[in-house]
Amino acid sequence: MSDSTGPPRSDSRPARREAFVAALMWFAALVLTVGLSTWLDSMPGASVLGVPRWAAYGVLVPWAVFFVLHIRFCLDSGADKSKP
């Protein structure tokens, strides 16, 4: 492993910070996806372009949103900008 630009390998804090953000994203996605899907499924409504409304807005749209957040997170992660 040759992470020459990063902090000493024994320092767990940069990785821990990233793990904490990843855990927060997981929890937010859980609440949003399961909550929204369950709520929309209980309401009457037509399909969205042939996809059930709960699946379109409760699963597929959150998937796209969290994909963008994931890319953003990856671009920031592992860079350790706070350290020289």
């Binding site: 994203m25 997981w26 992660s77």
Partner: peptide, 28 residues
Amino acid sequence: MLWISGYIVVATAGFWLLGRRIAELGGS
């Protein structure tokens, strides 16, 4: 589709909960 929706965050959780730290420790 709801059953598998946890995959929304699989890449994030799979790589960043442990990945970086394990990679660093593997090397050292």
